[in-house]
Structure formats: C-alpha cells, structure tokens
Simulated assay, not measured.
Amino acid sequence: MSKPRIAVVFGGRNSEHAVSLMGAGSVLEAIDRSRYEVIPIGIAQDGRWVLAASDQRYAIEAGELPAVDTSGTALALPSGEGSLVAYAPGSIPVELGAVDVVFPVMHGPFAEDGTIQGLLEMAGVRYVGSGVLASAVGMDKAYMKTVLAAAGLPVGRHVVVRERDWRLDRDRVVKEAEALGWPVFVKPARAGSSQGISRAHDRASLEEAVELARQHDPKVLIEAAIEGREIECAVLESLGDEPPVASMPGEVRVEGGHEFFNFEAKYYPDQMSLTVPADIPQEVAEELRAMAVRAFEALDCEGLSRVDFFYTPEGKLVCNEINTMPGFTSLSVAPQLWAASGLPYPDLVERLIQLALNRSPGLR
C-alpha cells in the first residue's frame, strides 16, 4: 500500500513568513518518512506556491531570517480535486497526485486566519489544525476576546480601533485609551509573533504605536497593561471521543533587557526562558488548565492551540489570547510544554497528522 502523502506548507504573504519556515523545518525533520511521503511546499511572499528547493533554508543563519526560495517548481491546488499540479510557462501542467493531509505550519494573515483553511476546504483536502471559523476568530484578537468573555473567561480591558475611528474620531480613541490607564500596549488586531506591538505611556507615544500597528493591520487593539506573570498552557485535541487535554502550565520570562515579549525575545537565542511546570499553586494550575480547555472549546478549535494567561499578584488569572497555530519549532513554547507533559515533539507531530487523517473533508 502507498504511504499517506503529507504536504507541509509554509511561508506566506505576511510578516510572519520567516517564523513559519522555522517551524516547518522542525516538522519536516520530525515526520516519520517510513510512514509518510512528505512534500514540502513553500508559499512565497508574493503568493506563489512552489515545491521547496533541495537547499531551502529554514533557520536563522548569521542573523538573517529565512525566506521561501522561489526557484522550485511552481504549483497549484485546483479547487475540488485535492491534487497538486506542477506547471511552468510554455509547458503542459503535470498532475502530481492527491495529497492526504496538509500540515499548514503557517502564522498570521492569509495563513492562520482561516484563509488557507478555506482554500483547503474548497479543494477537498484534510488539514492539521482548526477550521475556518476558529482560525479566523483566533486570529482577530478583538473578536477572540468577545468570544472568550462570552464563555465566562476573564479578559483584559481593551479598546478596538478601526481605520475609520482613527481617521475621523481620533480624540475619542485617545480618551478611551487614557481611561485604560498608562501604560497601554498597542498591537495589530490580526497579527502574531509580537509583530507591530509597542508600549505607549502618553498621547504622543500612543499615536506612534497605533501608526506602527497600522503598518500590519488597519484594525488595532489597545490593551490595558496587566501586572502579572505570563503563564502559558497548550491544548491538544484527543483521538476518539475524549475531551481536549491541557499540558502542564509553563512560565515565560523575558531575558536580554527587552521591555516585553517581542519578536526578538521569542525567536532569537537566549532572549527568553521557560519554566515547566510553572511555580504556581496546584489549585491555580488546575484552574488554568481547565480555563485553557474552555477557551479551546469556546472557539471550536481542533488539533492544537496555546492559551496565554497573566497570573496577577492578587492571585487572579486573566486570559490574554489563544493561538490556533502557535509557534511550532521543536523549541517553541507549545511543543516544550507537551514534551514536559510526556509527549515528545515527534509524537506531537504524529498525533496532529493522525487527527487530520481521521477527520472527514468538508463541513464538520
């Protein structure tokens, strides 16, 4: 019998392009080639799909971020067929055969936000991770907080700034931000990996921060600063009919003098530390794990997620956000949380592939 074909898709048209490649490199290394046929597919920053070149670089080297090498064979995924097609100018397209599962190791807009999930739904291809709705809601931090709050989870105070608000009613936006109390954190509503995030402590720095965030997304979120330790928990869908399970919680600490958990702190060496299990009371850890599963179910997530919390000096938990496709290198937080909980990285990758293989294409 032929092996299932797994297409690992990475890259994309957004500022998290390089982060995606770093995760894909780990996934490609971890997949058991004796069980699966693996097809690495890159999406270039201009949107082109290509078979990954044999010398494709996936890691940061000499401080240089990786990017999809567009010299590989161009690809298309026709809607409703589930088969990859290779093509070149002046040549007849060649069908490369059906794909059993797509593993989209992708983050940010036009990727983690339900867009690639919708494309795969139309193509009739199974894929790893959450569906269209959960992916879209999880990507949009404003709607995500609305859904989490509706599920009874505590979320931080915030202000949503749409493009029209900023153009026509800026004074009102500033007053609403001031009511949160300084400092505030300003971030694109639909971006990740701490791209475009900054801290503001007065009107001038707020306006600068909003303009920076708007370079990534016309919709911006202003959040009240929350004093507390950052505790993170990963959630994984169970095989069969069992409920989702939560990992041990872990505490993230920023090193290297960074003001907050920014891109450099997340992805450059020796800029952050993770303590698993987090040094918190047992009853708090159990409450946090239950809340993480509740967040996963509130968004109707599938596959995996990482849920981030603040643990305040008063002993309260605040749900900051959920990531439906968290950073996925073998050294990223979610995989490390699972490794500490007894599920090593290769087994985590295998679980996600099996979950996707067992899922029917189409609505579910």
Results as ranks from 00 to 15, higher is better:
180 L>M: 10
159 V>A: 11
94 V>A: 13
321 E>I: 09
339 A>Y: 08
235 V>N: 05
178 E>N: 08
15 S>N: 13
310 F>L: 10
71 S>L: 02
358 N>V: 01
295 A>Y: 03
256 G>D: 09
104 P>N: 03
130 S>R: 13
325 M>I: 15
361 P>Y: 10
248 M>V: 06
218 P>L: 03
128 V>W: 05
77 L>D: 01
64 E>S: 14
312 T>G: 06
70 T>A: 13
311 Y>I: 01
314 E>R: 13
123 A>K: 08
282 Q>V: 10
327 G>E: 07
2 S>P: 13
253 R>Q: 00
335 P>I: 09
55 D>E: 13
321 E>D: 14
99 V>D: 02
197 I>S: 07
40 P>H: 08
61 E>A: 15
242 E>L: 14
250 G>F: 00
177 A>P: 11
342 G>H: 02
175 K>S: 13
194 S>E: 10
218 P>E: 01
141 K>N: 03
180 L>E: 04
146 T>R: 14
303 G>Y: 08
317 L>P: 05
42 G>N: 11
285 A>N: 00
112 E>H: 14
28 L>F: 11
209 A>S: 13
207 E>P: 03
264 E>T: 15
88 A>R: 09
247 S>V: 05
26 S>W: 09
254 V>C: 09
140 D>I: 09
183 P>W: 08
55 D>V: 09
277 P>K: 00
250 G>L: 00
190 R>W: 07
180 L>T: 06
121 E>W: 07
168 L>P: 00
186 V>M: 08
56 Q>P: 06
242 E>F: 09
291 M>H: 12
300 D>Q: 14
149 A>C: 10
199 R>V: 13
165 D>R: 03
51 L>F: 06
17 H>M: 12
327 G>V: 05
279 D>L: 00
14 N>V: 07
273 S>H: 01
59 A>I: 10
233 C>W: 00
71 S>R: 15
207 E>K: 11
353 I>G: 05
115 T>S: 15
292 A>M: 02
262 N>W: 02
24 A>M: 10
194 S>V: 07
72 G>R: 07
250 G>H: 00
121 E>C: 04
203 R>V: 11
277 P>N: 00
287 E>D: 11
155 V>A: 11
63 G>H: 01
259 E>I: 07
153 L>H: 10
282 Q>R: 12
136 A>P: 09
155 V>N: 10
346 P>T: 12
97 G>C: 07
222 I>S: 03
82 G>Q: 04
57 R>Q: 14
283 E>S: 06
62 A>Y: 06
53 A>P: 03
163 E>C: 05
54 S>E: 14
148 L>I: 04
103 F>W: 02
143 Y>R: 13
225 A>Y: 04
249 P>K: 00
353 I>R: 05
194 S>I: 06
